[in-house]
């Protein structure tokens, strides 16, 4: 269980699902999800429903995605966060950069 991606029904959003550990070990897989697609997506959803743990490299990866998606204009939803994951995002003030649910 690691990383997979799919296009959401509206066709304009790419959903990336990360399971298990979200850290540097899935860096390449995570990056390929959004880099190796010919379509330009308007928005992204990172679904963490099955993610158990994450560390600061995951935070870095999310920021790289944000830059890729247009920086301050990027629309990125991080969904299905557990309370522990939300806490880690809060410590890093990520709610100012991402839509966290």
């Amino acid at each position: 269980m690691s990383v997979s991606s799919s296009r959401l029904n509206d066709g304009k959003t790419l959903m990336i699902e990360v399971g298990g550990r979200f850290d540097a070990s899935v860096l390449d897989e995570f990056r390929e999800c959004y880099e190796k697609t010919s379509v330009k997506f308007d928005s992204y959803e990172v679904n963490l429903r099955d993610a158990e743990y994450l560390d600061s490299s995951a935070l870095g990866m999310l920021l790289v995605l944000r830059d890729f998606a247009g920086g301050d204009k990027a629309s990125i939803l991080i969904s299905n966060c557990s309370s522990e994951v939300k806490r880690i995002f809060a410590i890093s003030s990520f709610e100012k950069l991402f839509d966290i649910q």
């Binding site: 560390d55 870095g60 920021l63 944000r66 410590i91």
Partner: peptide, 16 residues
Amino acid sequence: IKAQYFGRGLKLIESL
């Protein structure tokens, strides 16, 4: 916000 891709680790530890 100038988001750096690094440098959050120790702050995380400090908070946790």
